[in-house]
Amino acid sequence: MQYSWFASGGTVEGSGPEVRWNSAGTQRGSYTITARVDDARGGSAICSATIRVDVTGEIHPPADMKEFPLPAPEASTRQVLPDSPFAAGPNMTTLRDMDRVLSTALDQTGYGERSYLWVPDGFALVTRLEQIYPDGRPKPPPARFSAGPVPLRTFSLGDYLRALFTADPGYYRVLVFVVTPHDVSETGKKPTDQESSDWLHGGAAALPSVVAEKPRPPEVRCVVLVYEFENKKTTATTPAVPVPSDIDAKTHLQKAGIWTALHLP
């Protein structure tokens, strides 16, 4: 008996009555594998089978997007956002719809500059490094988005006395909204403030359409990673170091106004 195998895509590995079809290099679509058997006495038979290839996960970012590292660098604190703002419905069918909800909330709370990075089957939205008070409130402009420590610009007795008498380290925060159906684990390695700066400046200013037009995955979630840094303000070039947060991620979002802007209870 002589067996012949043909495939419209991929490769057939092995020979004889049992072979293995390798789908490497194939795209989404249907592929036909045909087997022909000859008995060397003029008899033959043909049998075909169709296999459908579906792409369930992407493992490489689009060309115009940089990747947010997953597992993620160790966050100061984290929170899975409730599903309600992103609940499936006629207005929530694509990743663009999810981005619209997040972007609207961030615009309302002063996070005008943000950056988009790629994660499998979703995106990561990174806010600009901002200065905060120890309780999580953003500092008023221009100190809020100043990269380094700045002197007091407005007089408040509490702020003044704190600045005059205490060490008053500067606290900084970067928020990363990771929208993906996959688990968002962490590496255990803290990021540097330079890395967090690279996330912002290396990402896309808007969600690229190649990602935005993708259907909203059914199991998608939004995980907020809060990266908090502390700067001792010894010199102008003293680097900010990542620190564990004294407050939880929900409080960070509440103090930033994002929780309310997302209409979360």
Partner: peptide, 13 residues
């Protein structure tokens, strides 16, 4: 001494 919070942001300054 007391004007420093308004003119200097760091200990070095």
């Amino acid at each position: 001494i007391v004007i420093q919070p308004f003119i200097s942001a760091t200990i070095d300054d």
